[in-house]
Design a protein around this nucleic acid. Structure first.
Length: 423
RNA sequence: GGAAAGCUGGCAGAGUGGUCGAAUGCGGCAGUCUUGAAAACUGUUGACUGUAACAGGUCCGGGGGUUCGAAUCCCUCGCUUUCCGCCA
């Protein structure tokens, strides 16, 4: 959520930045400023009447204590109008605050300086490409056929016990999952992240803190009996660890990592691009979350991007890095890098990681602040990235490492899987 | 699932209608002392809003009510803890 004061004092800049995203409702900005004007006037009136009422109440108290009952009663008679005024103004203020809030949550984050204007994925900038497409045998298979051939991932069985998008991993397939999780966690810890294990269900306040609520309510599974949401990513619980927290400046940066399953309803998805492991309702992911000083966040974003790339290199995958254009970025992000791995068998790029700087968009909602040397509290910056999401990495490994006689396991993974070939 | 107690500042904890944004202790910060540290002592130390700066306003789990006045009384919701039951 953007800060009202910032919007009020930087109207032109806000509009200019929103246009980078091709944001469709720039008029919201002026509506917010207008309501804010009225809100502040109402607040001022309410404050001064409250001050009068407080003074009168105090006076009555003093008079009562000194036994001057008649005088107290006289003042009491005069103060009845305060009550109504205060009630009226409070209600008006509450209404204004609600409407302002409802408008504010509709504004996405402002893109950072490096972000290019654009509206679709085609306008993303490819800023780096690594490796070469894998050379595959003549009849290369997509991963869903490989999964069936070697009986390592069973989509039908998942349909039987739950539904589409909930695969069952079997034998070496299951072992590969576990190996990847350990591989990713070990590397994250080696890179200085602290491993956390967090709840997989969160309350509404947490959903709001990281921006899933109210915008993406329909994307989360919701246990209505208990009013808890299944996490769509570890970002939600891990970032919310710091909700309503004022850190010390020397505590920054905070670098956490967590493995969790992720649950996404993916309402409205369909077609060839969601086949097999490409899009699931439940999948595993190791996530990185950092809380940094505002001066450090873009440098940190680069470091996180480098780190994710180091994993892909170690797995020997041909990938590219995109800097998303304004229109393709997530609602809450100020700048995002996507890492995509080339799938030779599907002949398309698969997004395997997304690393974003949210600047103060999340921390403003979370009230995640730090106290600097000056003693002044200010909002920290939050960042996160997948390192990595399993399904498409599994798909990439299966497809790009397939041979005539089985699937080769990337060298770096063998000590985790305990086998070097799936056949 | 049943019963009870509780929710106050970074933490512990006092406070049952006005002098309470809130005692006291711990912690934090600054200083005195010390070669340095510890101890001791002194001072200081909540957040939000607002102002050029003062002032002012709001916040004692959330919401509502009673009252001139609510941390304190009433209603309601939420949460936590303890005991019993069940159970990995």
């Amino acid at each position: 959520m953007l800060q009202v004061n910032y919007i009020r004092e930087n109207r032109e800049k806000v509009l200019e930045r929103l246009s980078i995203r091709n944001f469709k409702q720039p008029e919201l900005v002026d509506e917010i400023i207008k309501i804010d004007e009225e809100r502040r006037q109402t607040q001022t009136s309410l404050d001064s009447i409250s001050a009068e009422a407080n003074a009168a109440a105090k006076q009555i108290g003093d008079l009562m204590r000194t036994g001057k009952k008649e005088e107290a009663e006289a003042i009491k008679a005069q103060t009845t109008s305060h009550k109504e005024n205060i009630k009226g103004l409070s209600e008006k203020l509450a209404e204004l605050e609600t409407s302002q809030f409802n408008l504010l949550v509709q504004l996405p984050n402002l893109p950072g300086e490096l972000v290019k204007k654009g509206s679709t994925a085609e306008e993303n900038e490819t800023i780096y490409t690594y490796g070469e497409p894998a050379k595959l045998p003549g009849k290369a298979l997509p991963h869903w056929e490989l999964a069936a051939k070697y009986d390592i991932i069973d989509f039908e069985l998942g349909v039987k016990i739950t539904g589409a998008g909930f695969p069952v991993y079997k034998g070496k397939g299951a072992r590969l999952q576990r190996a990847l999780i350990n591989f990713f966690l070990d590397h994250a810890v080696d890179a200085g992240y602290k491993e956390m294990q967090v709840p997989h269900l969160v309350n509404a306040a947490s959903g709001f803190g990281t921006g899933q609520l109210p915008d993406k309510e329909g994307q989360m599974y919701h246990s209505t009996v208990d009013d808890l949401y299944l996490i769509p990513t570890a970002e939600v619980p891990v970032t919310n660890l710091y909700r309503d927290v004022i850190l010390k400046e020397e505590d920054l940066p905070i670098r956490n990592t967590a493995y969790t399953p992720c649950f996404r309803r993916e309402a409205g998805s369909y077609g060839a691009h969601v086949r097999g492991l490409n899009r699931l309702h439940q999948f595993d992911k190791v996530e990185l979350v950092q809380i940094t000083h505002p001066d450090q966040s873009y440098e940190t974003l680069e470091q996180m991007s480098e780190y994710v790339q180091s994993l892909l290199k170690e797995l020997g995958l041909h990938y590219r890095v995109l800097r998303l254009c304004g229109g393709d970025m997530g609602f809450t992000s100020a700048m995002t890098y996507d890492m995509e791995v080339w799938s030779a068998a599907q002949e398309r790029w698969l997004e395997v990681s997304s690393v974003s700087n949210f600047e103060t968009y999340q921390t403003n909602r979370l009230k995640l602040r730090f106290k600097g040397a000056t003693g002044k509290t200010q909002l920290a910056h939050s960042l996160n990235g997948s390192a990595l999401a399993l399904p498409r990495i599994v798909a990439s490994i299966l497809e790009n490492y397939q041979t005539e006689n089985g699937i080769k396991i990337p060298e770096a993974l063998v000590k985790y899987t305990g086998f070097d070939r799936i056949d």
